[in-house]
Structure formats: structure tokens, C-alpha cells
Design a protein around this nucleic acid. Structure first.
Lengths: 259, 259
DNA sequence: CGGCGAATTGACGGACGTCAACTGCTGTGG
DNA sequence: CCACAGCAGTTGACGTCCGTCAATTCGCCG
């Protein structure tokens, strides 16, 4: 519950908070508290009123949507990311349920405090708008990814994105169960298996959670990654000085900030 | 080019602008200009830098995304709506191309001016954040709609939403070509025809652009509309006093404000 | 009147979901 | 320490949904 200074600094360094005035930031943090959750905990249910802005400090979490007894994963969150911002800003009910995937440390900030801070600190309000813009654009990418690409293409692009986010080495490890990945990519687990099997022809070797990309050029020719869908490849001109936060939201829905 | 007072007032009445200070609003409008475009005009291409915030005053417009020679419609816009806000806030390249569907009157406001106004007027910055939140939530609904529902279910829900937006009468008229609707709903024109044919069993009668819903209860049982996907059915408690702007963005992607 | 494009219909094939069986791992309890 | 239950993952068979291609009709505009 008592928050370590290291964590406070990590939060303060987030684009969302870094431009806020000190008193704004303090006001937000005094109403906030840090909490540890075990894996598989539901933090917030679809349809619930939203009282807090969440910040994932450590661990892994998931946002999912439901309809007619079907369920789909809309995003997998990594530290450090905020989520449920949009609902907080509008003081509206949640459209997605939030669940921890791994044991997680999560900072909860009063939604009321966030709305008050926006009205009093224009710099913070601008930061919120920028954060939301990045989230919005992340979702636009997600929709394009879903509607324009086939299942194996989505998987191929996910793997290429994950590869660069894990340092660019030839082998990467899936950060969570394949069933979650399947749901994130919009297919069934069975179909994900088959999609992996398809990619064997393109030099993708799977061993449990370890995936090796043996012939990147070949896989790339299949995946056809695009900077207007896959946020991990921004033109270098845009990286410099441009809002870094936008790079957080990837095409596959894995985002550093998803609301 | 000279903007009528009627139009200025319509813009000022938008949630995005209604809370802004007078000088903020004036500053935004002096840099802006109104322009008429014929049907089928491309206003902005995917990948282009975005210099203006657009406001559709009259007519009909479309946002679309492309990849690998495939194209999909992400939203169909009606007056009065703003679009491309997120790209303006981040001063980023457009992720979608914007096209007029019908002859349209469009107000263009300097993006630079918008960003300046946000920094100087906290109330305006808050309004931008609220607008973006509504847009974000509209897209979340779109993704859930896409990933969780089948083609005929999407069509059924679109028809029910369109019905209420056209006054609730038993017959409605499609606002644009069926090929656009097909693309919006994530299917081919051929498949849309078949989906309409399926719905005949549920009391849907099609006659060119005129669609009649003869047995709403039956269609509703198929569509299973949900307030967490279909924005047109908000609980009455949420309608009162809550951000009206969120109601602009419908599940099908038809939005009054899409950025 | 002729031509173009939108819409519909049919036939076909491929992609994806569903169901079921089987494997392998893990954690639990006897 | 082992037996077993439970779950993730894989594989196969099958059916359905949906995209593709082609032909036809219709309405609109030149």
C-alpha cells in the first residue's frame, strides 16, 4: 500500500503526468493507492461505473469485451500503462472488463480527482488529450488490422512487432498463454495453432512459448507490415520530437496505454 | 467561403466548442474557412500530414483505411461532426483517408490553432479530451461489434440503430450506397445482399434503399442489441446530464464525431 | 439509345469455427 | 513418490460462413 519512491517516479515520468504541475501531480497521488493483485483477478467489470484511473506498475493485465456469451480480448497491457482513461474522463460505465493475467501491482487514482485536475491544470488536460489521441489511434490501427488482414497475416505481424519490442533477436517468447493471443488476434485457439503451422513455411519455428523467426525477410513479405497499421515502425522523422506515447499502442492491441 | 452566422452558431453549439471561452472560439474561427466539395472528393489521404481539424457542416463523408490494395470503411460521418481530431492533437500523419460521399460543406480549422487553444484554455482542452473519449469509446464498440458478432447480426443491429436515429418508424432509408454499408460492416457487397436475404425471415423487407422492419421484436431477438456495444441504447440514467457527445458514436462506426 | 456502375444471384472454393480425441504439463492429494 | 485430475495445446474431421468470380438485371446519365 505505501508507494515506493521508485514507483512514484516511474508514474511521474509517464507522458500523461510528466507535464503536469507539481501540485496537480501531488493532488492526484494523495488520493491514489497502490495495490497488489494475484493473477486472474477481475479489477473492473463491463458495465460497472468507473471510479478510478488505473496504472499498471508491474505485472500483466488484459482488457476484454463480452457479448452473447462470447468473449474477446481487446488489449494486453504491460507496465507502465494507464487504462480506463476515457471512461474516467466522461465519468461513464466501463465498456471492457479489466483482468490481471499475472500477479500485478496496480495504482488506482480517484477519477474525480482526475477530472478536477484537468479543469485546473491546462497542461494536464492537454496531456490527457494527447494520451487519448494515442489510444484512439491505436484502436484505429486495431480495426484496420482486423478488417483488412487475414488470420495468418495478423499473427505474422504480431510476431514481427513482438520481435522488435523484445530487442530484435531471432527468437522471442510469448508473454502470455496462446489462448489469450488467439483472442487478441480475433481467432480461436485451434485456429491459432494452424496459423502457426502455416508460418512454418515462412521460417517460423515454435517451441512452447518460444518462437524463432529464422527468415525475417520471408516472413516480412507475407506480413507486409505498414506504418499506418503497425505502430512499431514509425518513420524516423516522426519519432524525433513527436509524441512518444503514440508508439505505445500497437496494431495487435497490445498497448502501453489503453482506455 | 464566407461563413454564415447560422453555421457559426451550429459549430459553437457543438460539445467540442460550447464550453470554450469566447476569445478561444474566435481565435479558432478566424483561422478557419468553409469550403464546398462535390461528392467523391478526397479531403485527406492516409499517411498525409494533417494540417486542419475538419468539421462536416452539411453533406456526408467517409473515413477509410487501406492495406495491400484492400480498402475498408471505418466510419460514415453525418453533420455536424468533427473529424481527424486525434491526428491534429498529436500533429501526426493521418491513419485514414477522408472522402466526401455527397456534396458537402466542410469547415477547416487550423490544427496549429487548435493545439494553441488547448494550451491556453483549460476548458477547451477538457472539451477536446471529452470528445476524444467519446470517439475512443465509439471505436471500442466498433471493435466489439466486429469481433463478437456475425455478419447478419451486425446488419440487424445497424438497421435497429438506424431505425431509432430516423425517428423509430417501421421503415428507414439507407443514407448511402450499399457497397459503403457493406464495407462499414466488414463484408463484401455480395455478402451484404445475402445478409439482407437472411433477414427476410425476420421481417426485414428491402426495396432499393428503403428498408422496412415489419416485426421489430423478432429482429431484436436476433440482433441482441447491447448497451455496451450499441451506443443508441443508453440507460436513461446515463442520458441525463451525461456527456451527450458519447451518444454520437454508434457501434456500426457511423459517428457524429470520429477522429 | 447505349454504356456504365450498383445490386443481385448462383456456383465454387477457401478460411475459419466447432466438436472431439489425444498429448503433455502441472499441481494436488493419497 | 506416484496417481490422477485438470487444463493448455495440438490435431483431425466436418460444417458453415464468407470471399471470389461470373453472369444478369436494373437504374442513371450521358
Amino acid at each position: 500500500m505505501p508507494m515506493r519512491n521508485v514507483d512514484i517516479e516511474r508514474v511521474r515520468a509517464l507522458p500523461l503526468f510528466s507535464t503536469a504541475a507539481s501540485r496537480t501531480f501531488d493532488a492526484l497521488m494523495t488520493g491514489g493507492f497502490l495495490q497488489k493483485f494475484p493473477a486472474g483477478t477481475t479489477l473492473l467489470m463491463e458495465g460497472d461505473p468507473v471510479d478510478f484511473l488505473y496504472v499498471l506498475i508491474e505485472g500483466l493485465a488484459e482488457l476484454q469485451g463480452t457479448w452473447n456469451d462470447k468473449e474477446t480480448t481487446l488489449a494486453v497491457l504491460r507496465p507502465v500503462s494507464t487504462f480506463i482513461l476515457a471512461a474516467v474522463v466522461l465519468d461513464a460505465e466501463a465498456l471492457m472488463t479489466a483482468r490481471t493475467i499475472d500477479r500485478s501491482d496496480i495504482l488506482m487514482i480517484s477519477g474525480e480527482a482526475v477530472r478536477r485536475a484537468m479543469k485546473e491544470d491546462a497542461a494536464f488536460a492537454v496531456a490527457v488529450a494527447e494520451e487519448l489521441s494515442g489510444c484512439y489511434r491505436g484502436l484505429v490501427r486495431t480495426v484496420k488490422n482486423q478488417k483488412l488482414r487475414g488470420a495468418s497475416e495478423r499473427l505474422a505481424n504480431y510476431l514481427l512487432a513482438e520481435q522488435v519490442s523484445q530487442g530484435g533477436g531471432p527468437t522471442l517468447s510469448l508473454p502470455h498463454e496462446k489462448r489469450v493471443l488467439a483472442s487478441l488476434l480475433g481467432m480461436t485457439p485451434e485456429n491459432l495453432s494452424r496459423a502457426f503451422a502455416n508460418l512454418a513455411d515462412y521460417g517460423v519455428l515454435v517451441n512452447g512459448p518460444e518462437v524463432s523467426i529464422l527468415r525475417p525477410a520471408v516472413l516480412d513479405r507475407l506480413a507486409k507490415p505498414d506504418r499506418l497499421i503497425d505502430s512499431h515502425l514509425q518513420p524516423s522523422s516522426a519519432r524525433i520530437g513527436m509524441a512518444a506515447r503514440e508508439c505505445h499502442a500497437s496494431a495487435a492491441g497490445k498497448a502501453a496505454a489503453y482506455n
